[in-house]
Design a protein around this nucleic acid. Structure first.
Length: 518
RNA sequence: GUCCCUGUCGUCUAGUGGCCUAGGACAGGGGCCUUUCAAGCCCCCAACCCGGGUUCGAAUCCCGGCAGGGACGCCA
């Protein structure tokens, strides 16, 4: 087999977090590279961000790794077409800029006094709080900027074939002045000598021999401008594939303003990366049959660009209450992050993502499960150091079927780590105060104190024969114990629960309950 | 405002002119099992945005509406 000429890239800007949309873009690029035997490149688009670049890049790298994605070339691993930070490629952009000046496709000029921006734009900028920043800054820049002249001669429209959406065309007039004849030139390098996104992106994609640009739908408009740059450079553009947007439950593009987009949030909710990635892959792509649960490897086998949907998908959460302020994006404040995580965990309940995660959790071996859940147990404050691994795994085995996230699992284990602080009054009423509950519990306590062998089967046997002897339903015996021992009316099977609690702790809790209720 | 894109159950989707009284999954409702909670199994509810064409036949093709979204920076 010939080495594939497919080269794709994920080019995030280091904003301090990796968001769910970015993960999907990265994922689809990765899938296409792995499917075709091509190369996957990571490039950091940091032309406009000054602060914490290193740290922010690391966050992206960590996030991608968590998702199980790897790259063949990138800032950390290097590669033949580096550097992979745009901030380190400035010389190259200037070089290409000069080249365009020489070939007559671009020119330096001062900002034309085009008057103030239109009303609708001012409104938008103000709404986003950007009116004072970038816009004003740029307007104030006295230095000449580099303008590219789009080639519109003899053209009525510009078009390209998108691998997802098919042919996309726009009338040439879009890039013309009011007169409908003169092309409207656009800036490719700022007055301060920094390249503009649409320019840097093309220069890099050319240099890095990118064959397919797989990116978000919101770049469709950029594509046309980039096409002009490719033309000016006399270079064949890559195949473009625009992924549909990811919407929130309001049908709007997810945003860090109000949606939980940082993937660390999902990590901290106790989601497994394999489930998260599986879920994201299914947002806009499907294998064409009825498979839902597909590990990355299996998706890779089936992946193709032409099975990507053109319509947007909702990343549906079930919001029961509004997000705590500041809403759901990235934050560096652990206390706020914790609040958002709590909120997100609630929103996840009943979602397909949660269900899928539960499915993956059930497939995990107990050893794996233990390794994954350990950080969450630690976060709950449970001391694992004096616990036997066998015991821990037995506890997890009980939780594995009953929970859908690692966070839930850790929290569900609490009954084995600490006695209930209070007994649920409703449960007490129903199972202890009625139906001879207390009396039965007292008797059972005696039996449990004298049981010969403290094992799950022996306990089950003992309780079973006790209920038979009393001519009661098993539940009449089990429920009072359950309430006494865990404080609520629900738990894993009673014999398993008691066994793992141990005899001493079981008796201690029953005594405490008897004292509290009598 | 201009341009572009999209429109199948509440949600993710299958569907590329007849296999469609539209399939699967999540959620919801009900049942079985059962010591509770889960899990598992079974059943139910639930959609082709609207209107015109084309065709023997349309969710699928065409046109027109409507609705939603996106983009329009010396942000990326």
């Amino acid at each position: 087999m010939h080495p594939s000429s497919v080269r794709v890239r994920f080019a995030p800007s280091p904003t301090g977090y990796l968001h769910v949309g970015g993960v999907r873009t990265a994922l689809f690029n990765w899938l296409y590279a792995r499917k075709t035997g091509g190369k996957f490149v990571l490039r950091i688009e940091d032309t406009d961000i000054e602060r914490n670049k290193e740290e922010a890049t690391q966050i992206i790298i960590d996030g991608l790794k968590w998702c199980g994605l790897d790259w063949d070339e990138g800032p950390d691993v290097g590669g033949p077409y580096g550097p992979y930070y745009q901030s380190q490629r400035m010389g190259r952009y200037r070089e290409v800029g000069e080249q365009l000046v020489k070939s007559g496709r671009a020119y330096w000029a001062k900002k034309e006094s085009g008057g103030p921006p239109p009303e609708w734009r001012i409104e938008k900028l103000k709404k986003e709080g950007k009116w004072d920043e970038d816009w004003a800054r740029a307007a104030a820049d006295p230095n000449p900027a580099l303008y590219l002249k789009p080639d519109l001669k003899g053209r009525s429209e510009m078009a390209f074939d998108d691998a997802v959406k098919g042919r996309i065309a726009k009338p040439a007039a879009t890039w013309m002045e009011e007169d409908g004849k003169t092309a409207r030139d656009f800036v490719i390098m700022r007055g301060n000598g920094m390249p503009v996104y649409n320019f840097a992106c093309v220069v890099d994609d050319v240099d890095m021999k990118i064959s397919h640009a797989i990116r978000g739908d919101d770049h469709v408009e950029n594509t046309f401008r980039q096409l002009f740059v490719y033309e000016a450079l006399d270079h064949k553009p890559p195949v473009f594939a625009h992924l549909p947007m990811i919407f929130n439950e309001e049908g709007k593009k997810i945003s860090k303003r109000r949606d939980p987009v940082a993937i660390t949030l999902y990590q901290n909710c106790g989601l497994l990366p394999e489930a998260f990635v599986n879920f994201e892959a299914l947002l806009g792509w499907s294998p064409g049959d009825e498979r839902e649960m597909m590990p990355l490897q299996e998706i890779t086998k089936e992946f193709s660009l032409d099975r990507i949907k053109a319509s947007p998908a909702q990343f549906a959460l079930k919001r029961k209450r509004p997000p705590p302020v500041p809403a759901g994006g990235a934050t560096t404040d652990p206390a706020i992050e914790a609040q958002i995580v709590e909120w997100l965990a609630e929103c996840l309940v009943g979602s397909k993502l949660e269900w899928l995660n539960g499915e993956y959790m059930k497939k995990l071996s107990l050893d794996e499960l233990l390794a994954r859940v350990a950080p969450f147990l630690a976060k709950c404050g449970y001391d694992l150091s004096d616990k036997a691994p066998g015991w821990l795994k037995a506890v997890l085995a009980l939780g594995q079927e009953r929970t859908k996230t690692l966070k839930q699992l850790a929290e569900k284990c609490s009954l084995f780590f600490k006695a209930p602080e209070t007994l649920d009054p409703k449960a007490v009423e129903k199972f202890l105060k009625k139906n001879d509950g207390l009396a039965l519990l007292k008797e059972v306590r005696g039996i449990l104190a004298r049981v010969a062998e403290w094992s799950a089967p022996a306990l089950e046997q003992a309780l079973q024969s006790f209920s038979e002897q009393k001519q009661r339903k098993f539940g009449d015996v089990a429920q009072p114990i359950r309430v006494a021992v865990v404080g609520v009316a629900a738990s894993p099977p009673i014999h398993d629960t008691l066994y793992l609690l141990g005899q001493r702790e079981t008796l201690r809790r029953i005594d405490a309950a008897l004292a509290a209720v009598s």
